[in-house]
Write a protein that binds this DNA or RNA. Structure first.
Lengths: 201, 201
DNA sequence: TCGCAAGTGTCTAAGTAATCGACACTTCAT
DNA sequence: ATGAAGTGTCGATTACTTAGACACTTGCGA
């Protein structure tokens, strides 16, 4: 809407993206803690002054990178999924499908979970975000016609799904997106036959 | 040397690199021919005018990309290799090793050989460059103590090596750099026992 | 323990890369 | 034939990036 913002936001965002990308690559190369601001600007071919125009320090960059990726993950899954008395296990539910797509699209970032000295908070906040998505996006009330504690069920399935994701990522995305999804579906079929949403009316 | 050039060349090069990277990604997404200048600047988040500051058209960008990568390949192999009466087949000769490293480092680019509608000239000029390197870098006169036509020998081994490289790239770099190199060494051992350079004095 | 190398965070003046918007084209499909 | 989309160019404007200097902190080796 504001012309001045629109005209320049592209440049600013572009620059910040380059710093983020540099941070990702450098973490893989040398680990997070040993990275200096100088390393980042050298890698991204910017002047050190430029870095401080955009970020207070390395920590702020790291936090913005993590927050933006997890935010993107959340927003990429779309609207809450309401099956409405319908068996859905013949194909992966849309939110999980979108999660897989988003992670694959940004695999360069998510590969950071393979590293020990990596983005602070990644190893805790990534699975938490998966769980949050499950909690917010799924509206089920019974599983296989049996009422269940949905809070427990969502936590269980979210972390189970996270475990599979982690394995997929750590193995370097050997399976295609489609094969991985298929694998998850097959697994799900073995113990979940239907999920139901009991509508109000 | 020139201060004014040094200060600004970083910014220019950075921008051009972004256009090159955008072109690589877009070729993989939609093929070379359907890409427009607008696609490139949109993808790289630049204004269309900026593109024309740096390049005349898409073709010039494509040619510069190809030329710079093949130039980098050539210069990365280092000095001419002179074994001097020494058996070398226990390890890969340095030039080939450097070629493998360079390709792996720039695998994002070299993956373009997997595509049909790809960078014009890539499929012909890439192997030609390998051959050129072999022709310029190797100074051998006998193989297994037998004098050979070096022109024929270099062409034969260069294209053989190229075939292995292509397979490695097309399979998504499944083998590590080290494993691939080991494989080439083992193959070489089966038919080449020694190469010699007959010095003048 | 001293001293020095390397990094941090901040600031200003200056240069220039990138932007916007408009123009006159050309293609191409409807 | 008519409009949508892309091309190539230009000039004026903007604001991003730079260089360089400053005072400070850290850490390590002599």
């Amino acid at each position: 809407m504001n012309n001045e913002q629109n005209r320049t936001s592209g440049r600013q965002n572009r620059t910040k993206e380059h710093f983020k990308q540099a941070l990702i690559d450098l973490i893989k190369e040398q680990g997070y803690h040993s990275i200096t601001v100088k390393d980042i600007v050298d890698y991204a071919s910017y002047n050190r002054s430029t870095f401080y125009i955009h970020y207070q320090d390395k920590i702020e960059l790291a936090e913005e990178l993590l927050a933006s990726m997890l935010q993107g993950l959340e927003t990429s899954v779309g609207k809450p999924y309401v099956p409405g008395h319908k068996v859905y296990t013949s194909k992966l539910n849309p939110p999980s499908f979108n999660i897989v797509s988003y992670i694959y699209k940004n695999r360069n970032f998510f590969e950071l979970i393979n590293y020990d000295d990596t983005l602070p908070g990644l190893h805790t906040r990534f699975p938490q975000t998966i769980l949050k998505i499950y909690q917010e996006q799924f509206i089920f009330e019974t599983i296989n016609q049996i009422p269940v504690n949905m809070d427990v069920f969502k936590r269980y399935t979210a972390y189970g799904f996270y475990g599979l994701l982690q394995n997929w990522i750590q193995n370097g995305f050997k399976e295609t997106k489609e094969d991985f999804i298929k694998e998850v579906i097959e697994l799900t079929k073995t113990h979940i036959y239907s999920v139901e949403y009991i509508g109000k009316k």
